[in-house]
Protein backbone atom coordinates (compact mmCIF):
# COMPACT_ATOMS: atom_id res chain seq x y z
CA UNK A 1 0.00 0.00 0.00
CA UNK A 2 1.33 3.40 -0.95
CA UNK A 3 0.89 5.95 1.84
CA UNK A 4 1.48 9.68 1.60
CA UNK A 5 2.27 11.28 4.93
CA UNK A 6 2.92 14.93 5.81
CA UNK A 7 5.57 16.59 7.97
CA UNK A 8 5.24 20.31 8.33
CA UNK A 9 8.09 22.43 9.69
CA UNK A 10 6.61 24.40 12.58
CA UNK A 11 7.98 26.68 15.27
CA UNK A 12 9.22 24.79 18.31
CA UNK A 13 6.28 24.55 20.72
CA UNK A 14 8.68 24.68 23.67
CA UNK A 15 9.89 28.15 22.74
CA UNK A 16 7.97 31.38 23.21
CA UNK A 17 7.11 33.08 19.94
CA UNK A 18 7.87 36.78 19.56
CA UNK A 19 5.67 39.27 17.75
CA UNK A 20 7.32 41.52 15.17
CA UNK A 21 7.27 45.31 15.87
CA UNK A 22 4.57 45.79 13.17
CA UNK A 23 2.29 43.49 15.19
CA UNK A 24 1.26 41.62 12.04
CA UNK A 25 3.81 38.84 11.90
CA UNK A 26 5.93 36.62 14.11
CA UNK A 27 9.69 36.93 14.35
CA UNK A 28 11.48 33.92 12.98
CA UNK A 29 15.02 35.09 13.85
CA UNK A 30 16.42 32.90 16.58
CA UNK A 31 13.38 30.61 16.49
CA UNK A 32 13.97 26.91 16.42
CA UNK A 33 11.82 24.61 14.33
CA UNK A 34 10.54 21.08 14.72
CA UNK A 35 8.34 18.65 12.83
CA UNK A 36 4.66 19.17 13.63
CA UNK A 37 4.14 16.69 16.52
CA UNK A 38 0.80 15.48 15.12
CA UNK A 39 2.57 14.73 11.83
CA UNK A 40 5.16 12.63 13.67
CA UNK A 41 2.27 10.48 14.87
CA UNK A 42 1.08 10.26 11.25
CA UNK A 43 4.54 9.12 10.11
CA UNK A 44 4.67 6.49 12.86
CA UNK A 45 1.26 5.16 11.86
CA UNK A 46 2.25 5.03 8.19
CA UNK A 47 5.40 3.06 9.06
CA UNK A 48 3.41 0.55 11.13
CA UNK A 49 0.90 0.06 8.31
CA UNK A 50 3.81 -0.32 5.89
CA UNK A 51 5.31 -3.05 8.05
CA UNK A 52 2.01 -4.92 8.03
CA UNK A 53 1.02 -4.38 4.39
CA UNK A 54 4.22 -3.51 2.51
CA UNK A 55 4.35 -0.81 -0.17
CA UNK A 56 5.87 2.61 0.19
CA UNK A 57 5.74 5.57 2.57
CA UNK A 58 6.26 8.91 0.83
CA UNK A 59 6.82 11.86 3.15
CA UNK A 60 5.75 15.29 1.99
CA UNK A 61 6.43 18.76 3.34
CA UNK A 62 5.04 22.08 2.15
CA UNK A 63 7.02 25.07 3.40
CA UNK A 64 10.45 26.72 3.41
CA UNK A 65 13.48 25.02 1.88
CA UNK A 66 14.79 24.08 5.32
CA UNK A 67 11.82 21.72 5.67
CA UNK A 68 14.17 19.07 4.23
CA UNK A 69 15.38 18.71 7.83
CA UNK A 70 11.94 17.54 8.93
CA UNK A 71 11.66 15.32 5.83
CA UNK A 72 15.03 13.72 6.67
CA UNK A 73 13.82 13.11 10.20
CA UNK A 74 10.83 11.16 8.87
CA UNK A 75 13.10 9.32 6.44
CA UNK A 76 15.35 8.46 9.39
CA UNK A 77 12.32 6.94 11.15
CA UNK A 78 11.94 4.69 8.09
CA UNK A 79 9.91 6.47 5.38
CA UNK A 80 11.14 5.61 1.89
CA UNK A 81 11.45 8.89 0.02
CA UNK A 82 10.55 12.55 0.35
CA UNK A 83 8.96 15.37 -1.60
CA UNK A 84 9.38 19.03 -0.68
CA UNK A 85 7.07 21.69 -2.03
CA UNK A 86 8.80 25.00 -1.45
CA UNK A 87 6.45 27.80 -0.44
CA UNK A 88 6.95 31.16 1.26
CA UNK A 89 3.69 31.64 3.11
CA UNK A 90 1.51 28.63 3.67
CA UNK A 91 -2.06 28.95 4.86
CA UNK A 92 -4.39 25.96 5.20
CA UNK A 93 -5.73 26.38 1.68
CA UNK A 94 -2.34 26.62 -0.08
CA UNK A 95 -1.25 23.64 2.01
CA UNK A 96 -4.24 21.52 1.06
CA UNK A 97 -4.07 22.49 -2.62
CA UNK A 98 -0.37 21.61 -2.83
CA UNK A 99 -1.15 18.25 -1.24
CA UNK A 100 -4.03 17.75 -3.65
CA UNK A 101 -1.64 18.08 -6.61
CA UNK A 102 0.84 15.66 -5.05
CA UNK A 103 -1.90 13.13 -4.34
CA UNK A 104 -3.01 13.31 -7.95
CA UNK A 105 0.61 12.85 -9.05
CA UNK A 106 1.53 10.07 -6.62
CA UNK A 107 -1.84 8.27 -6.45
CA UNK A 108 -1.52 6.94 -2.89
CA UNK A 109 -4.21 4.74 -1.37
CA UNK A 110 -4.04 6.56 1.91
CA UNK A 111 -3.00 10.02 3.12
CA UNK A 112 -2.18 10.35 6.81
CA UNK A 113 -1.60 13.80 8.30
CA UNK A 114 -1.63 15.46 11.68
CA UNK A 115 -5.06 16.72 12.75
CA UNK A 116 -3.54 20.17 12.98
CA UNK A 117 -0.27 21.98 12.49
CA UNK A 118 0.86 23.45 15.78
CA UNK A 119 1.95 26.73 14.18
CA UNK A 120 -1.54 28.03 13.41
CA UNK A 121 -3.66 25.23 14.99
CA UNK A 122 -6.24 25.73 12.22
CA UNK A 123 -7.27 22.06 12.13
CA UNK A 124 -8.74 22.10 8.64
CA UNK A 125 -6.03 20.96 6.19
CA UNK A 126 -7.08 17.30 6.15
CA UNK A 127 -10.72 18.23 5.78
CA UNK A 128 -9.94 20.67 2.94
CA UNK A 129 -7.86 18.05 1.16
CA UNK A 130 -10.62 15.46 1.46
CA UNK A 131 -13.02 18.03 0.04
CA UNK A 132 -10.79 18.95 -2.91
CA UNK A 133 -10.17 15.29 -3.76
CA UNK A 134 -13.71 14.22 -2.97
CA UNK A 135 -12.27 11.41 -0.82
CA UNK A 136 -13.70 10.09 2.42
CA UNK A 137 -12.07 11.36 5.61
CA UNK A 138 -11.61 10.01 9.11
CA UNK A 139 -10.33 12.74 11.40
CA UNK A 140 -8.85 12.62 14.94
CA UNK A 141 -7.73 8.99 14.62
CA UNK A 142 -7.02 7.41 17.97
CA UNK A 143 -6.59 3.98 19.51
CA UNK A 144 -9.10 2.29 21.77
CA UNK A 145 -6.43 0.27 23.58
CA UNK A 146 -4.48 3.39 24.60
CA UNK A 147 -0.80 4.22 24.76
CA UNK A 148 0.00 1.90 27.70
CA UNK A 149 -1.46 -1.15 25.97
CA UNK A 150 0.34 -4.30 24.82
CA UNK A 151 -0.72 -3.42 21.26
CA UNK A 152 1.18 -0.15 21.49
CA UNK A 153 4.26 -1.86 22.93
CA UNK A 154 4.13 -4.31 20.01
CA UNK A 155 3.89 -1.27 17.67
CA UNK A 156 0.61 -2.47 16.18
CA UNK A 157 -1.12 0.04 13.93
CA UNK A 158 -4.30 1.62 15.27
CA UNK A 159 -5.76 1.92 11.77
CA UNK A 160 -7.11 -1.34 10.36
CA UNK A 161 -6.96 -1.94 6.62
CA UNK A 162 -8.99 -4.81 5.27
CA UNK A 163 -10.11 -5.43 1.73
CA UNK A 164 -10.10 -1.82 0.53
CA UNK A 165 -11.76 -0.65 3.73
CA UNK A 166 -10.21 1.32 6.52
CA UNK A 167 -11.49 1.21 10.09
CA UNK A 168 -10.59 4.13 12.30
CA UNK A 169 -11.28 4.78 15.96
CA UNK A 170 -12.03 8.45 16.31
CA UNK A 171 -11.85 10.68 19.35
CA UNK A 172 -15.06 12.57 19.95
CA UNK A 173 -16.34 14.53 22.94
CA UNK A 174 -17.02 12.07 25.71
CA UNK A 175 -16.14 8.88 23.85
CA UNK A 176 -14.88 7.09 20.79
CA UNK A 177 -16.46 6.62 17.38
CA UNK A 178 -15.65 3.65 15.16
CA UNK A 179 -15.66 4.68 11.49
CA UNK A 180 -15.29 2.68 8.34
CA UNK A 181 -14.27 4.41 5.12
CA UNK A 182 -13.46 3.22 1.61
CA UNK A 183 -9.90 3.65 0.37
CA UNK A 184 -8.46 5.89 -0.90
CA UNK A 185 -9.06 8.10 2.11
CA UNK A 186 -7.66 10.89 4.26
CA UNK A 187 -6.89 10.22 7.91
CA UNK A 188 -5.88 12.88 10.42
CA UNK A 189 -4.17 11.79 13.62
CA UNK A 190 -4.89 12.70 17.22
CA UNK A 191 -2.45 12.54 20.14
CA UNK A 192 -3.36 9.11 21.46
CA UNK A 193 -2.98 7.09 18.25
CA UNK A 194 0.61 6.02 18.90
CA UNK A 195 3.95 6.91 20.40
CA UNK A 196 6.32 7.91 17.56
CA UNK A 197 9.64 6.04 17.50
CA UNK A 198 13.06 7.63 17.83
CA UNK A 199 15.29 7.41 14.81
CA UNK A 200 18.28 5.12 15.28
CA UNK A 201 21.73 6.02 13.99
CA UNK A 202 21.53 3.61 11.03
CA UNK A 203 18.16 5.18 10.25
CA UNK A 204 19.61 8.69 10.42
CA UNK A 205 22.52 7.70 8.18
CA UNK A 206 20.33 5.89 5.66
CA UNK A 207 18.08 8.94 5.47
CA UNK A 208 21.01 11.07 4.32
CA UNK A 209 21.15 9.15 1.06
CA UNK A 210 17.40 8.80 0.45
CA UNK A 211 15.82 10.67 -2.40
CA UNK A 212 14.05 14.00 -1.77
CA UNK A 213 12.37 15.59 -4.80
CA UNK A 214 11.66 19.29 -4.87
CA UNK A 215 8.85 21.26 -6.49
CA UNK A 216 7.68 24.83 -6.24
CA UNK A 217 3.99 25.73 -5.94
CA UNK A 218 4.27 27.01 -9.51
CA UNK A 219 5.55 23.61 -10.71
CA UNK A 220 2.37 22.08 -9.32
CA UNK A 221 0.11 24.79 -10.71
CA UNK A 222 -0.95 25.99 -7.26
CA UNK A 223 -1.72 29.68 -6.74
CA UNK A 224 0.76 30.77 -4.04
CA UNK A 225 -1.41 33.66 -2.82
CA UNK A 226 -2.68 32.89 0.70
CA UNK A 227 -6.41 33.28 1.27
CA UNK A 228 -5.87 34.27 4.86
CA UNK A 229 -4.52 37.61 6.07
CA UNK A 230 -3.14 37.99 9.56
CA UNK A 231 -4.43 41.35 10.76
CA UNK A 232 -2.79 41.51 14.17
CA UNK A 233 -1.17 39.42 16.87
CA UNK A 234 -1.43 40.12 20.55
CA UNK A 235 0.37 38.63 23.53
CA UNK A 236 -1.62 36.88 26.23
CA UNK A 237 -2.29 39.14 29.22
CA UNK A 238 0.60 39.13 31.63
CA UNK A 239 -0.15 37.38 34.87
CA UNK A 240 0.06 39.64 37.91
CA UNK A 241 2.50 38.81 40.62
CA UNK A 242 1.08 37.02 43.68
CA UNK A 243 1.13 38.36 47.24
CA UNK A 244 2.01 36.62 50.45
CA UNK A 245 -0.56 37.07 53.22
CA UNK A 246 0.47 37.05 56.88
CA UNK A 247 -2.08 34.58 58.22
CA UNK A 248 -5.35 32.79 57.54
CA UNK A 249 -7.45 35.68 58.91
CA UNK A 250 -5.78 38.10 56.49
CA UNK A 251 -6.39 35.65 53.63
CA UNK A 252 -10.09 35.28 54.47
CA UNK A 253 -10.39 39.04 54.79
CA UNK A 254 -8.80 39.66 51.41
CA UNK A 255 -10.89 36.95 49.73
CA UNK A 256 -14.09 38.37 51.23
CA UNK A 257 -13.52 42.12 50.93
CA UNK A 258 -11.04 42.51 48.06
CA UNK A 259 -11.65 39.62 45.70
CA UNK A 260 -15.29 39.26 46.84
CA UNK A 261 -15.29 35.53 46.10
CA UNK A 262 -16.56 34.22 49.46
Amino acid sequence: MKILVTVKRVTDYERKVKIAPDGKSLLTDGMSFVANPFDEIAVEEALRLNKAHGGEVVVVSVGPKDSTQEIRKALAMGAHRGILVTAETVDSDVYARALQQLVEKEQPELVIMGKQNTDDDANQEGQLLAGYLNWPQATFASKEAGLDSADEKAQKPGLVVDNGQLTVVREADGGLEHLSVDLPAIVTTDLRLNQPRFASLPGIMKAKKKKVEEFSLGDLGVDPAPKLTYVAYSEPKERQAGQIVENIDALVDRLRNEAKVI
Binding site: A199, L201, P202, I204
Partner: peptide, 13 residues
Amino acid sequence: LATETSCLWRATD
Protein backbone atom coordinates in the same frame (compact mmCIF):
# COMPACT_ATOMS: atom_id res chain seq x y z
CA LEU B 1 31.82 -0.72 11.50
CA ALA B 2 28.72 0.29 13.40
CA THR B 3 26.96 -3.07 13.63
CA GLU B 4 23.99 -4.13 15.70
CA THR B 5 26.26 -5.27 18.53
CA SER B 6 28.35 -2.07 18.58
CA CYS B 7 27.74 0.85 20.93
CA LEU B 8 27.62 3.26 17.99
CA TRP B 9 24.57 1.47 16.52
CA ARG B 10 22.33 2.70 19.32
CA ALA B 11 23.66 6.26 19.35
CA THR B 12 21.21 9.14 19.15
CA ASP B 13 21.74 12.58 17.65
